[in-house]
Design a protein around this nucleic acid. Structure first.
Length: 153
DNA sequence: GCCAACGTTGGC
DNA sequence: GCCAACGTTGGC
């Protein structure tokens, strides 16, 4: 069992969108960064849990929890010329971008980025590393447990 | 809208 | 393989 943090812009796919989706499940489409792709394609396992994080909005932060429910499979948007995530260099027989399905687990209180930065226990969290831009980052078991307690408050 | 930081591209 | 230029991310 591993833990992750996955960023999404709420205007595109919010925690409420995930909760309202059929089966409360959505494919995590649109990742176009190799490191984040590798986490999804290779490192994740079915049953892993992730914090659902809203980025690019007024109050960025953790807003819920979701679960990885599928093996990796090609991101269909890379082959759709009408999609902003279209990638002309990706060949259908050798897809460049892979994703997994995630299922809604629960909403949490909004735990803002500003608040996360206040705790020394989280000082080494990948999300908070200087210059971090990765949309998917690993979370340690200790960080997961600590944040879990914060979310109960 | 600004800007820091990072990733990718492409010429050499 | 290097590196400059460019594009993107994402907080503020």
């Amino acid at each position: 069992m591993q833990y992750w943090l996955m960023k999404s812009e709420p205007a595109e796919a919010s925690i409420d969108d995930l909760a309202a989706a059929p089966g409360q499940t959505l494919p995590w489409f649109g990742v176009r960064n190799y490191q984040a792709r590798n986490f999804m394609r290779d490192a994740m396992q079915v049953g892993d849990l992730a914090f659902f994080y809203h980025s690019g909005c007024a109050e960025p932060g953790i807003v819920g929890i979701c679960e990885v429910t599928s093996e990796s499979y090609p991101d269909a948007t890379q082959f759709d010329p009408g999609s902003p995530y279209f990638d002309a260099k990706s060949a259908p027989d050798q897809p460049r971008w892979w994703l997994r399905d995630v299922r809604f687990v629960n909403k949490t209180r909004a735990l803002s980025l500003a608040e996360l930065r206040r705790y020394p226990e989280l000082a080494n969290m990948r999300l908070l590393a200087r210059g971090n831009r990765l949309s998917i980052t690993p979370v340690t078991a200790a960080e997961w447990a600590f944040i879990g307690k914060l979310l109960e408050q």
